[in-house]
Design a protein around this nucleic acid. Structure first.
Length: 579
RNA sequence: GGACCUGUGGUGCAGCUCGGAGUGCACGCCGCCCUGUCAAGGCGGAGGUCGCGGGUUCAAAUCCCGUCAGGUCCGCCA
């Protein structure tokens, strides 16, 4: 029984709370008409719904109400007659009788049926989101999200973290994601931007001595949308001083595991860690889905001196598909097509049969090569082996993608497998000017063993940055930050950022660091994604009250749309012609 | 910027390959009947610019081109 009173001036309790202990009492409930069943002029049943559930009201005589009318029903709680109990309904043992029905609000028929069983097009659901939210699933998802939020907040507070709000109107920092721009009325021609994350703000809070900061923070990025990406999303943003990576893992694990526990009723075990290099080696991705095996295997040495032209590449990798021997030719063709789309030159397949290897390439293989494929990952008859020969990264990523195509359960299925990915490379490549590009952001601390490689072999420099991955989704990332001016300036040099440019872009941060910056590190993860997976959804729109479509439109409000002449004048905006 | 999928009464679908009258199914809606239903049941009815524009054709929901909207993905997301 909840401690919170459900009673209001109009009702005594929620529809779903009516139970046999109240038999004999006269009570008022309020809600929407979920269903009306009339039996002539002498008897009618009304199912009254609120977010807690449904209760049946019995009306003697006909009643002039329709679906989705909002009612206040006052009636006596009665045990249902023998043989009419409904065990599919939480309140199915009882009903309200001798009902007085008060119409609080009439309603037109809704544009779609509010029924879990009805599969409604998302376009229609989004246009009438307020009706969609009446559905059980949306109620469950939004309430799950609320309880995850409060659990995260409690976990952080319990660990001594202080919640600080940071500005939504921030200064442009031309780095990383495209920013949403806000024109200034008082400073025409100048702009604020909406923060892609509170990254710099939270580092300044560390300089300010906050010591342990967190925020359930809205982040905004003007980049194309996806199933797991909206313009605006919510992160649990964390930063702490005088800590190492391990401290951050402990803090964040505690919060995430608490949230998982309230959502699923089970607390997952400690979150294991894997290096970025191992993730790429064994899973072909930096966000491995650990719910299933099908690991990548390196056959490069077995094919070192190969006569087969297709395998003449720096790296030969393979996966075993258990039972994949019955894949049709068109399925294999589709996989080959996918491999090529991803940048591979081709895809070789081998069916493992009692007679040997069944493949167009089988007869070209040497005996040792045949043996290597037949023995791959304890292959058995009926299995399939897929081989990609290419540069190391291409071969790994292509097989990693094929592994998911073939083996991945729906994102929301199965066990929840969390994993920390560590030791990401500090740089991810070079830009068109030949300057190195940060993999995370330019304030990421290099691995201390690798600092001397910055000038000699920068692509091998590991960073003290890390991701948290759940079932193949990147939940979030973080890093130990650079707090020493000498290391920061070496990084800027490597990135081709001059002192003047650094001062222009990050001046206030670098300035702050001159006044005593504690060693600090942090993390941020997407609450939308975490809640989606915990809710069993493969799309974060299902856990967001009012999401946008893939083109960034809000089908309910019709945003984005024009503004008034007055607003345009105040902001002194002019528009370039299209083209 | 690109690839693929979808668009048919209020809702969900079938019809599209192989062109022939807006044809069908389920739900909802409206009316009538019905005193124990619970996705109530029975009878009857209304409801359509086949997303939009153009083309081919004697004839287009159906074939072709373009376009808009929604979705999945690539690019993008330090």
């Amino acid at each position: 029984m909840t401690e919170i009173s459900e009673a209001t001036s109009l009702r005594d309790l929620l529809c779903g709370s009516v139970d046999a202990s109240m038999i004999g009492q006269t009570l008022s409930v309020c809600g929407w008409v979920a269903k009306r069943r009339e039996h002539g002029e002498h008897l009618a049943f009304l199912d009254l719904r609120d977010h807690s559930g449904v209760v049946q009201a019995v009306v003697d005589g006909s009643v002039d109400v329709r679906s989705e009318y909002v009612l206040r029903v006052t009636g006596r709680v009665t045990r249902r007659p023998e043989g009419t109990l409904n065990d599919r309904l939480a309140t199915g043992e009882v009903e309200l009788t001798d009902c007085e029905v008060e119409i609080l609000s009439a309603a037109e028929p809704p544009p779609f049926q509010i029924d879990e069983r009805a599969d409604v097009d998302e376009q229609v659901r989004l246009k009438y989101r307020y009706i969609d939210i009446r559905r059980d699933k949306m109620q469950r998802n939004l309430r799950l999200r609320a309880v995850v939020n409060s659990t995260l907040r409690r976990a952080m507070e319990r660990q001594g973290f202080c919640e600080v709000e940071t500005p939504l109107l921030w200064a442009p920092t031309p780095e990383g994601a495209r920013e949403f721009v806000v024109p200034s009325r008082l400073h025409p021609g100048e702009f604020y931007v909406l923060p892609q994350s509170p990254q710099i703000a939270k580092q300044l809070l560390m300089v300010g001595g906050v010591d342990r900061y967190f925020q359930i923070a809205r982040c905004l990025r003007d980049e194309d949308l996806r199933a797991d990406r909206q313009f605006e999303f919510t992160q649990l943003d964390v930063e702490a001083s005088f800590v190492t990576q391990e401290d951050i893992f402990a803090f964040v694990s505690e919060a995430v595991l608490d949230a998982a526990q309230v959502a699923t009723g089970e607390r997952p075990g400690p979150i294991s860690a894997m290096t970025w290099a191992d993730a790429l080696e064994y899973y072909g991705t930096d966000k491995p889905d650990l719910r299933f095996e099908m690991r990548l295997h390196d056959l490069s040495s077995a094919f070192a001196g190969t006569e087969v032209k297709a395998f003449g590449a720096p790296c030969v990798k393979a996966i075993r598909v258990p039972g994949g021997g019955d894949f049709t030719r068109s399925k294999l063709d589709a996989l080959t097509e996918q491999a090529k789309t991803l940048g591979a030159r081709g895809l070789a397949w081998f069916r493992v049969t009692a007679e040997g290897l069944d493949s167009p390439l089988a007869r070209f293989l040497s005996e040792s090569e045949t043996t290597a494929i037949k023995a791959l990952d304890d292959a058995r008859f009926g299995d399939l082996v897929l081989v990609v020969a290419d540069e190391y990264v291409v071969a790994s990523k292509v097989l990693g993608a094929l592994r998911l195509t073939i083996g991945a359960p729906p994102v929301s299925d199965g066990p929840h497998r969390y994993v920390w990915i560590t030791e990401f490379p500090l740089f991810e490549g070079v830009d068109e000017d030949g300057h190195l590009v940060s993999a995370h952001h330019p304030f990421t601390m290099p691995h201390l063993d690798d600092v001397d490689l910055i000038d000699t072999d920068p692509m091998r420099v590991r960073s003290q940055s890390y991701d948290l991955v759940l079932n193949g989704w990147e939940l979030g990332s973080g890093s130990v930050r650079i707090h020493r001016a000498d290391i920061q300036s070496r990084i800027f040099t490597a990135l081709g950022i001059s002192e003047e440019e650094a001062a222009l872009r990050f001046g206030f941060l670098l300035g702050a660091f001159k006044y005593g910056a504690p060693p600090h590190a942090g993390f941020a993860f997407g609450i939308d994604r975490l809640v989606a997976i915990l809710a069993g959804e493969d799309n974060i729109r299902e856990v967001i009250a009012f999401p946008k479509t893939q083109s960034g439109a809000d089908l309910m409000t019709s945003a984005p749309k024009g503004i008034t002449e007055r607003q345009i004048r105040d902001l002194r905006l002019t528009f370039a012609p299209k083209g």
